[in-house]
Each structure stands twice: as C-alpha cells, then as structure tokens.
Design a protein around this nucleic acid. Structure first.
Length: 560
RNA sequence: CGGGGAGUAGCGCAGUCUGGUAGCGCACCCGGCUGGGGGCCGGGCGGUCGCAGGUUCAAAUCCUGUCUCCCCGACCA
C-alpha cells in the first residue's frame, strides 16, 4: 500500500542553496535523498526504490552471464591490503579495533575475494569463476560533490572473474561487455562504452561506461565509431599552415617573448607553426624533452603511459642548467632524448634556440634533431578520426570493466594446477557498477523544467494516481477502486489521496517523475474518462472509465 | 592540498558594517472557505543565531580559536 498521505516523501519547493548539479537539486527536492555529511547520503523510501530497481537489473544481467552472488565484509584486516600493496592508498579509510589491530574499510574487494579463491581453487577444473556482490564502498574522497554523483560511501556492484589464462580472461571480459551493454540499455540511459586508462593498477585493458550529461566529471571524446575517455583518446590534429622551408634553421631575435602566443604574433604565424618544448624529469633525475605543436597541450596521463613510468615537470633551475633560459628552449642541440608528439607533421617550425631572446625558424624534425615519436597530445574538439570530426562531452562514469591480469593473484598466492600438473597464476578481471550514479545520470539526462522524468525501468513507481475528489466523493470511490485494479495488473502505483489542492498534487507528481500520471477528477469523470499524462513530453491523453486499468497498463508497456 | 564562500526555525533568506528584548516568505498546527496547476481569510507552534573562549553594563553583531558544509582547482584503485 503506497498512499501518499502516509508515505515519507518530503518534497521541497526550493533546492538546497548550495546545490549545483541538476540531479543533486532534483533528487533532494523530490524527496529521494537527504544529506548526512560531506559525501554521505540517506536514501529515502522513493529514492531507495529507484536504487533497488537498478540493483535488480544489474543482478539479473550478472546472473545471466554466470555470475554467482556473494557478500563480503566492508571491514577488513589491514594485513591483506599490505600484502597486495594497496595499504598506502590515501583514499583508503584506516582504523584500529580495540586490540589495536589495523583495519581498513574496503573501497573494493580484490584482496578478500582473491584470498577465498586462492584457498578454495586448486585445479584448472575449478575455473573459470565469476563472483560478485553488492556492497557498501568507502572512499575518503578529497572532494565529494554533486549529491550522489561523488560520495565517500556508496553501494557498488563489483564482480571478479578468475581464469586459467589471458584467453579465458578475455572471454569473461567480453561476457561482461555484453552484460554491461544490457544493464545500461535496460536502465534507459544514453551511454557510451569508452576506452579507458588502466591507471596505476597496471592492468592490460579497460573500458568505462559513460552516461553523457552536463554534471559529468569525465570528458569523453566521441566520433562516429569511436569513443574514448579524453585521458587516453587519440586523433588526427587539425592541419596548420607552416612557413616555407629553409635550408637550415635561422636565428630570429625575440627579446622578451617567452610564450608561444608572443612569438607567434611577432612572426605573424599561427601558434601551430611553432614547437612547444615540455621538459620533464624521470625517476633518477633523467631528463627528457617532450616536443609538440605550439597549439597543442600535453596529456599527462598519455605521457605517463608512453613513458611507462612516473615523471614530473622539470624545475626552472633544471631547465636553465641543462637546456637554456626558460621560455627559449627547443629541441635543436638539446643534450637529452627528445620525444616528439605525432601531431607534429613534417615541415619547418619555429622553436626556442636554447639561448636568451632568440628562436630558430625553419626547424625540421629529423633533419635538425633526432627524436622518438610518441602520442602524448590532449585531443581537442574538431580533431579528425577516421575522417569524422571529434567532439568532447562531459559524462558520468556509471561502470567500468578492467582486465587485472595477475596483479592480485601473484601477491595473494592464487594459483591452480594445470592439466600437466604445473602451478599457474590465475588471471583476473574486475568490474564495477554504481547504481546511484545510474540513477543520478537518468535524472540528469531526462529532467525538464517540471522535474524528473524517469526511464520506465527504474522509476520509483510505474504510475502516480492522483485523485482530486474529497473523501466520500464519487471520484474518490472510483480512484480507490482503480488503485486496486492497477496493483492487480502489476503496476507499482503511488496513490496521491492527500487532502491538498490539485496544483500542489500535479506539481509534486511531475517533480517525482513517474512515467504516467493518472488523474481522477469530477470534470473528466463526467465525460466518462480518466486523464493520463505521459511524464516524458507531458502529453495528455485519456482512457475510458470502464477499462481504465487495462488501457493504462498498455500505455505503460509502450513507454521508454 | 591551494583559492573562494557560507553556518540565524524543516526549506529559502534578512539582520552583522554602525552591539541594545531574533525577523520575513514558504512549510507545519487549529478553524473556515475553496477544489483541474504550489488558492484565500483568521488564529497559532517552532530558533542555546555551528561550537568554545574573550571584550563589554549589554554580543547573532566586535576579537581569538575551533568545527562543519558548499563551490572552483589539484586529486580521483
């Protein structure tokens, strides 16, 4: 029985003063969530129904690919995390029990699940295996924000696959691709599966499931047939007009001009006709000079991946000592390896001369300096890929899938014996999905001026039934009866029988955003009809009194 | 971690500069009217002004410290 007069659905006329993101404002206003502290949220009844609907979709798809649901604890011994090498992570909540033993609050469960598998799995006959759970995750985020989009505590579905070899892992990974594609579709989201950075975990491949929306914290580079996180995206740069070639570099005086823009405007050239030099220092004080087109920027994640090692930008003193005056450095004559971005096409460029107040023009890569080609440029909108134009959109990361390899099986001793009796490491994958983010993404993607407009599959209720009649009226009696019929047909119905004005009821209903709003009032009843509003698009239609429930159910089945 | 902002009733805010009995709108409670887009009239309830200390005859207001929250950036297995 879900009668609004007794249901805990505290709606608000005003959004929280400091809320910025649309989903944050609307989910609070609609009475779905309430804040407890920074990045800590309570899910109220209607909000929790949405969350649970997403969870059920995810559960069904995981089961469909052979996943087996388990439950692992949030509180875990620090020892496991020391063994896996993750104890030092700053986001990890750390605490002690009464005996002083170090504990952690899990941000994911690789350590625990791998330990169980290591203990139980002995033979190749026990593999492959897919285990998953829905469990609270704890992360000491430096900056929680935007309602439930980025929180310190949240529920995540995390699954883990265990295979004999890379081929097995690949097969399980592809199964997850299928399952995740379906989860995103079934949640009614617009989404992209994008190539992702494997990050510090050093896995062998990763994709993210991104839901584009203005509040998204990630940027996705998209072109027909291509989608990648900008952190790893590659594309052809837009062409640039270069100077005529010269037989050899010529010095040009550029006093006081230490920026690309200043030199470009002095020589009346586009910034892209210059070379930008980005000196970096690797572990052990080795220097490298990264060179890219003047109008391009370094993507530090791509650079780190290209180097295969961490780096830092060189300090000005190091630049002055090893190359030349900062603002005037360039690749010609540089006494260090040069990494040339592949966005620099052949031709004559203007570059720093490694001496005060001077640049060189007519510098040609290959002729005037040797280099190693790398791809370290940040892509920008307008770049080309497969002949199409690239665009960049903000998006929410709802899920990610990741090939771990033997990252955890090695330190935690997860081995098996193969057919010939040899001990082998288990190959693992891990896969995350955030129901709260899926819900927030749906709010972001479909909300309008009036409020939320849920996809049918994850709405808190299928139908909101509004009666305008007072207790004892003919309309009220009919609405009571219709409520029962809708429930019998399997439609989850929220019945607004509050003693409130029609305006208030309509506004609350559209704020909450159930796919259908059914109104029983004297006016339409007099005409033998019941009014039905389709929330998305707000189009109104009507059904006959006599078989209203069946017609409403049929309408509902046709909704997105 | 750097920069900016805010803590006064459930929500949104004024009052702080210039110290002098804590206010407004909405919500809520009671009564009545109204009944297809946050309706109207009348009467009410509700706040240790984030916390601690200090100055003062007197502190929401001035001073010191502290906690919390938000936004931008950095960060984001």
């Amino acid at each position: 029985m879900t009668r609004l007069s007794t249901y805990f659905l505290p709606t608000e006329r005003d959004p929280p003063a400091d809320a910025e993101a649309l989903s944050h404002k609307l989910m609070v206003r609609a009475g779905l969530i309430r804040q407890v502290g920074a990045g800590l949220w309570t899910w109220l009844p209607a909000g929790w129904r949405v969350h649970q609907r997403v969870v059920q979709i995810v559960r069904e798809e995981m089961n469909a690919i052979g996943g087996q649901e388990i439950l692992m604890p949030v509180l875990q011994p620090a020892e496991l995390w020391r063994r896996s090498g993750r104890y030092g992570i700053e986001e990890l909540f750390k605490l002690q029990d009464r005996r002083g033993a170090d504990m952690v609050l899990a941000m994911t469960s690789e350590e625990v699940v791998t330990t169980h598998v290591a203990a139980a799995v002995k033979s190749y006959r026990d593999l492959p295996l897919t285990l998953y759970h829905f469990q609270t995750k704890e992360r000491d985020e430096p900056r929680p924000r935007a309602g439930v989009l980025r929180t310190r505590e949240f529920i995540m579905k995390d699954s883990y696959t265990f295979d004999r070899d890379p081929e097995g892992l690949e097969a399980n990974y592809q199964k997850h691709v299928v399952a995740y594609d379906r989860m995103m579709d079934r949640c009614g989201l617009e989404w992209y599966r994008v190539e992702a950075d494997v990050g510090m975990m050093g896995g062998t491949g990763a994709h993210e499931y991104m839901a584009p929306c203005p509040a998204g914290e990630n940027e996705v580079a998209i072109a027909p047939g291509y989608a990648a996180n900008v952190e790893v995206a590659s594309a052809e740069p837009q062409p640039v007009q270069l100077e005529p070639p010269r037989d050899a570099p010529e010095i040009v005086s550029t006093p006081g001009m230490t920026t690309i823009d200043a030199v470009a405007s002095e020589l009346s050239l586009p910034a892209g006709a210059l070379l930008k030099a980005f000196p970096i220092v690797l572990d052990g004080d080795e220097m490298r000079l990264v060179v890219l087109r003047g109008d391009h920027r370094v993507n530090e994640i791509k650079l780190q991946n290209a180097l295969g090692a961490p780096f830092r930008p060189a300090h000005p003193e190091e630049v002055a000592a090893r190359l030349g005056p900062p603002g005037y450095i360039g690749p010609v004559g540089a006494q260090m390896p040069i990494l040339l971005d592949q966005g620099v096409s052949p031709g004559p460029y203007v570059a720093g001369a490694n001496q005060p107040d001077a640049h060189l023009r007519g510098v040609e890569p290959g002729r005037d300096f040797n280099y190693e080609a790398v791809d370290v440029r940040a892509v920008v909108p307008g770049d080309r890929i497969n002949g199409a134009t690239l665009r960049i959109e903000p998006a929410i990361e709802v899920g990610n899938i990741f090939k771990l390899g033997t990252r955890y099986s090695k330190p935690l001793g997860a081995n098996y014996l193969d057919e010939s009796g040899h001990e082998q490491l288990i190959w693992m994958g891990c896969y995350g999905f955030g129901p709260a983010r899926a819900a927030a993404a749906a709010v972001e993607q479909y909300a309008d001026e009036q409020g939320i407009s849920w996809p049918r599959a994850i709405a808190p209720f299928d139908v909101e039934l509004v009666t305008l009649g007072k207790e004892g009226s003919e309309e009220r009696a009919y609405a009571d009866q219709l409520y029962g019929l809708l429930m019998e047909l399997g439609l989850d119905t929220l019945y607004d029988e509050r003693d409130a004005g029609p305006g208030e009821k309509f506004i609350d209903a559209e704020l909450l955003g159930c796919p259908l709003r059914v109104t029983v009032g004297r006016r339409t009843m007099g005409a033998g009809e019941v009014e039905v509003q389709i929330r998305r698009g707000r189009e109104k239609t009507s059904v006959l009194l006599d078989d209203a429930a069946e017609e409403i159910a049929a309408l509902w089945r046709g909704l997105p």
